[in-house]
């Protein structure tokens, strides 16, 4: 059997990221943001490998952010780890409950139902004046064990936390794919009936994967909220979920690192489009994305794979 090089490569990537963040301070914010979104896309990758397209990951992304936000805003909790854990738990719990319903659906029904659920959250948040309606509210600056993670001089600590979190999640996902339950993903995508005949419950497996994706989206949302310092219901809007699906396709499902790479490239292209064509950035972004899809149909990760092969 070929030696598993992914863990050592991921750890090398972590070291490289930490060094890059040290020498390029102006890219820390974008990097942290890309990891926050990348975590959500990592959850989508799991679902995609199982043959499911969720157009409603914004639900958990937003829920995680609001869980962390309300805790920070109304109870004054600023400890990043606590907020991330609470966000993951809240999103995971919601996914466990909604998963009972969703695990029975496939294809377009799964996609549309997940989208509808996230729009319900959007609608509720828009109506809640105490949470600032569409204006949302600000999050206090996060801390870790009483030490500030962001200040005027440096956002490096938060970037480090995000990198560690991202690599840890990617590693965990990598090992998960090697467990029996993880290996069921492509099997379910290819032929559910055979999986059932093998003695596994497809419904239970889908449910578990949906909860994992929900937890990742919740943590990603909380991390994004902490980075940006502001959250609003737009996070649950269908365009946000659509962006995640788009980034997932752009990244490709080839590796657990792909979502983070794809997410960063997407943010990078978008920010340069804003800067260089303020009047037509959508056109520039769309063109760039279209070219990537046309020339790299298996996603950005195929570039990495091609070189390795």
């Amino acid at each position: 059997m070929k030696k598993d090089r992914t863990p050592s490569l991921l750890l090398a990537a972590l070291v490289a990221l930490l060094i890059l963040g040290l020498v390029l301070p102006e890219w820390r914010f974008l990097g942290t943001l890309a990891i926050g979104k990348g975590l959500t896309v990592l959850g989508l990758l799991l679902l995609l490998r199982t043959g499911l397209v969720s157009f409603g990951q914004g639900l958990y992304y937003c829920l995680g952010a609001y869980a962390a936000g309300t805790l920070g805003q109304f109870w004054g909790t600023t400890d990043a780890l606590l907020l991330l854990v609470v966000a993951g738990l809240a999103a995971g719990l919601a996914a466990a409950i909604l998963g009972i319903l969703l695990a029975a659906y496939r294809g377009i029904f799964f996609s549309m139902l997940s989208l509808a659920l996230s729009m319900i959250l959007y609608g509720l948040l828009v109506k809640s004046a105490a949470l600032g309606s569409t204006d949302g509210f600000n999050l206090p600056a996060p801390t870790l064990f009483g030490l500030p993670l962001v200040s005027h001089d440096s956002r490096y600590p938060l970037f480090v936390l995000a990198c560690v979190l991202g690599v840890a999640a990617a590693l965990a996902m990598h090992y998960y794919f090697r467990t029996p339950l993880g290996r069921l993903s492509p099997a379910i995508r290819d032929n559910e009936i055979r999986v059932e005949y093998l003695g596994a419950s497809v419904r239970a497996a889908v449910h578990v994967k949906y909860v994992i994706a929900g937890i990742l989206a919740g943590v990603g949302g909380a991390l994004t909220g902490m980075t940006v310092g502001h959250i609003d219901p737009e996070m649950a809007y269908w365009t946000t979920s659509g962006e995640f699906v788009f980034v997932a396709i752009l990244s490709g499902t080839g590796s657990v690192a792909a979502p983070f790479l794809g997410s960063f490239i997407f943010e990078l292209v978008r920010t340069f489009a804003y800067e260089y064509s303020p009047n037509s950035w959508q056109l520039a972004l769309g063109t760039a994305m279209l070219l990537i899809i046309v020339f790299l149909p298996a996603g950005l990760w195929s570039l990495v794979q091609r070189r390795r092969a």
Partner: peptide
């Protein structure tokens, strides 16, 4: 230097930082 305000708060915070740090 002009920047489009469309796109929501996350993108606006990101672009604000770019205005200050890169531009």
């Amino acid at each position: 230097v002009f920047i489009d305000e469309a796109g929501g708060t996350t993108k606006q915070v990101s672009e604000y930082r770019n205005l200050v740090q890169r531009q």
